[in-house]
Write a protein that binds this DNA or RNA. Structure first.
Length: 571
RNA sequence: AGCCUCAUGGUGUAACGGUAGCACGACAGAUUCUGAUUCUGUUUGUUAAGGUUCGAAUCCUUAUGAGGCUGCCA
């Protein structure tokens, strides 16, 4: 049923929001105006050690968004300098996620590991210039000699080795003559520097690990700091955009660019990473949720990962709009999850076709409707889209409606069914509840109603009667069964990520509710995986990949706003 | 404690020395064959104290608060 998905173009369109310019785009404008650059070149540099999350999406929208706006380019570069954590699976998922978000790096796919020869040569350059040395200290010694926040460090006893000795030692490190961790190459900067990153940072470590690309060619690997800026320079990146925690690294970033014969001099600019309430964003914690089976995988619809949100049914355009809305600043704040949900509802309201589905069914029998009659009624597909048209929905003597839409003893402001009350069945008829049936436990099992033939299509009757409510329904004879997974926030604490608590203690036990006896209108029988639909009056749903042709599974993407539920909660 | 960074309603974000605006939320109402959508209205803010200026959210000083940094992670 491809007509139900009406999935919009997944690439950024003029409808994507963008208001005033953030401070980074202002810097770019100034650099263009001054002639420093003719076009900005950016890069998105993930480490392939996990799946992308909504925080990465913010960075992707920034970097690729800039390239798109300025008609320039954004490189995808994998920062793969630590083979002990990195895997091809992540390389693949990251590329798929970026594409799904609507961005493209063209021919500009790079790997830091492709620069290992050059990085190594530059390490030799530093040694030759007397600006790097091989240190034999143990990791413990290095740590204790680094000093701390208030006290300066002390020089390594190996700091003053000759250039020749350092050259020979470094070459031997590369040749595999020393065990893992026994030596490192360090920059010779200043052990008393107020910025700890400048206290003779480690450039290379010995690490015998199979690299997902370079295989076993190397047994020494460069550190992030000694790789990132030079990679930027090699690619002629003009503006290297990263998150706030790298602020303290900028002096080191600059130091390498200043002390090496690099082909260009990029500028690092830091912005605040994305924080969302009720979720955790660190890769380590997300990995833990997956590894310890608190969720079904990286793409569990409750995960803040790009793949989780995709499976949940969040449109890429909504994620882009969200990222545009929250903006780019240096203020490290926390965004309201409601803002993301608003962005999701906004595009889904516009695009998703409407269907009727009853999640918690109660049977309705229309006592005055002919036993054998079936009518095909016209139902509107999307009131927001005149081109979406209508469809036929079967109507007969036995229907299902939502259990919530009936109350035995309803209050005045309840606009739905109750004994003696009349409501509109959407696009069908007006029905009046004449009686109801209970089972032995006192649970209502069936409503006995009468219909007014003069209200066909849901129209107002000629006698001028009014009705306050409209309910959705499905024909019991034609309904198709389905499982519906209703998701709520994964954590029940607004800030589960805080150091003050263990985030696992705040997993919301009600984050997933599986409803098995749901009844759908027949048009939903052939909805395809990934299709997004609004179930009228309930919310937006999508077909989960777990679906089979005889066992349909839907995910609730997000509920509709529900002012009735809100009023009830208030009492 | 040292260094770096930040500070505008409940949340996020504008204002670039000249009327503090927008979005989300909340609240109230209108419309409605989805208690949805849409529309209208209301509410709440420049961390503090000094200074410069005709005029300061914006510039300066100090204070306060918040975040980051002591991996051979990125």
């Amino acid at each position: 049923m491809s007509d139900v998905s009406s999935s919009p173009s997944s690439s950024p369109s003029p409808s994507d929001k963008r208001d005033s310019k953030d401070f980074i785009r202002e810097i770019i404008d100034a650099d263009l105006a001054s002639g420093k650059h003719s076009a900005p070149v950016t890069r998105f540099p993930p480490e392939p050690n996990g799946y992308l999350h909504i925080g990465h999406a913010k960075s992707i929208c920034l970097n690729f968004g800039i390239a798109k706006e300025y008609g320039s380019r954004c490189h995808l570069r994998f920062d793969d300098t630590n083979p002990s954590k990195e895997e091809q699976e992540y390389v693949d998922s990251i590329q798929a996620d970026i594409r799904w978000l609507g961005f493209d790096w063209g021919d500009h796919l790079f790997f830091a590991s492709d620069y290992f020869d050059q990085i190594y040569a530059w390490a030799v350059t530093l040694i030759r210039d007397g600006k790097a040395y091989v240190d034999d200290q143990t990791p413990e010694d290095i740590r204790s000699n680094r000093g701390n926040l208030t006290e300066p460090g002390v020089n390594s006893p190996f700091r003053d080795r000759s250039v020749e000795e350092n050259l020979a030692l470094f070459e031997a490190m590369r040749a595999g003559n020393f065990p893992d961790g026994s030596k490192v190459l360090r920059a010779k900067i200043d052990m008393a520097h107020a910025n700890l990153n400048m206290r003779d940072p480690v450039l290379y470590r010995i690490l015998r690990a199979h690299h997902h690309r370079s295989g076993d060619k190397w047994c020494i690997y460069p550190m992030y700091d000694f790789t990132h800026g030079q990679s930027d320079a090699l690619e002629h990146i003009t503006h290297s955009l990263c998150t706030l925690e790298f602020e303290n690294h900028r002096p080191l970033y600059e130091w390498f660019l200043d002390n090496l014969p690099v082909p260009s001099h990029p500028r690092q600019i830091e912005f605040a990473r994305l924080n969302l309430n009720y979720t955790v964003m660190s890769k380590r914690k997300l990995l833990q949720l997956v590894d310890e089976n608190h969720v079904s995988g990286w793409d569990d619809p409750r995960m803040p990962t790009v793949s989780g949100m995709r499976r949940r049914g969040y449109p890429a355009e909504a994620i882009r709009n969200f990222c545009a809305t929250i903006g780019i600043t240096k203020f490290n704040g926390t965004n309201d999850f409601a803002l993301l949900e608003n962005a999701v509802r906004e595009v889904m309201n516009r695009d998703a076709q409407r269907r009727m589905a009853v999640l918690d069914p109660i049977k309705v029998t229309i006592t005055n409707y002919p036993e054998d009659q079936v009518e095909e009624l016209d139902v509107i597909n999307n009131p927001e889209d005149p081109n979406a048209g209508t469809r036929k929905v079967p109507f007969c003597r036995e229907l299902y409606i939502e259990r919530d839409d009936f109350m035995e003893d309803p209050p005045k402001k309840f606009f739905r069914l109750g004994p003696g009350r009349e409501v509109r069945f959407r696009c069908a008829y007006w029905l009046k509840c004449e009686d109801f049936v209970k089972d032995a436990e006192g649970k209502v099992t069936e409503l006995l109603c009468t219909y007014d033939p003069e209200t066909r299509g849901g129209e107002n009757p000629p006698d001028g009667r009014k009705v306050k409510g409209t309910v959705h329904w499905v024909s019991a004879r034609h309904a198709v069964p389905a499982e519906v997974r209703v998701y709520d926030r994964l954590f029940d604490h607004a800030n589960p990520d805080s150091k003050k608590r263990n985030f696992l203690d705040h997993i919301n036990p009600a984050s997933l509710e599986i409803l098995s006896g749901c009844q759908l209108e027949p048009a939903l029988a052939d909805a395809k995986v990934g299709d997004s639909i609004q179930f009228e009056r309930l919310g937006y749903f999508c077909v989960d990949p777990d679906s089979t042709s005889d066992a349909r599974v839907f995910n609730r993407t997000v509920g509709l706003r529900d002012s009735w539920a809100k009023e009830q909660q208030r009492g």
